[in-house]
Amino acid sequence: MNAPAPAAVAAPFYQAQGDECRLFEAAWQQQLPVLIKGPTGCGKTRFVAHMAARLGLPLITVSCHDDLSAADLVGRHLIGDGQTVWCDGPLTRALRQGGICYLDEVVEARKDTTVVLHPLTDDRRMLPIERTGELLEAPPSFMLVVSYNPGYQHVLKTLKPSTRQRFVAMSFDFPAPDVELAVLMQETGIAESQARQLVTLAGQLRRLTGYDLDESVSTRLLVYAAKLMMSGMSPQQACRTALAEPLSDEADTIAALLAVIDTQFPAR
């Protein structure tokens, strides 16, 4: 956890859906923190990785969880040989390096954690480290990016309005069919006809969001399915393992999902 992403040599592939890349760049130049919302597996993390590589910045990703404390972000004293050693947390490290700190699924983090971000996200752009008495000032290239999934809303787990208001926000959704088609082909090298079938199938399954499924099939799952198909698995089986089973645990729902899959990839 909290491991820095290895500095990418070439920018990871990202298929732009609109002018989100330009927006992100403008926000970086103006030193504004960015909030990205969007369903699971629609490309939020990939987008940030892509932009970090494009801007030539180190990217430090923190996957937030409900026990993430302020110390986990900022840093803590560790016990060394009879003495304590201060160890920077990912946020402090990103600050010192002047890179992008990306907090994934920020709503999962405890509420007090997000308050640590407040002095970083206004015009002060600084991080006070209480334990060492240090006051870190953010270099111009530092950028804070947080993301969360509004579809997966816990009653309690939403961002505090006071936190939300400090970010410029971008909304992501699953790409349009043609874009998704390009993504699938680029990511997996799958033939266009099969990719098109997968995208059509995704469109059918996404109609069920909110009725039968809490959340529908993501671009990531489609990529998985395509990868399985590329490895020689039958399309039927690839879709079953990558699309039907991950979406539900109920036998009836899975049977119906399989029937939907059958309309694109029939059982031989």
Binding site: Q204, R207, D212, A256
Partner: peptide, 12 residues
């Protein structure tokens, strides 16, 4: 009957 509504919705 258990699968029908889901299938019908998925078909649009």
């Amino acid at each position: 009957a258990g699968q029908a509504p889901l299938f019908f919705r998925a078909m649009g």
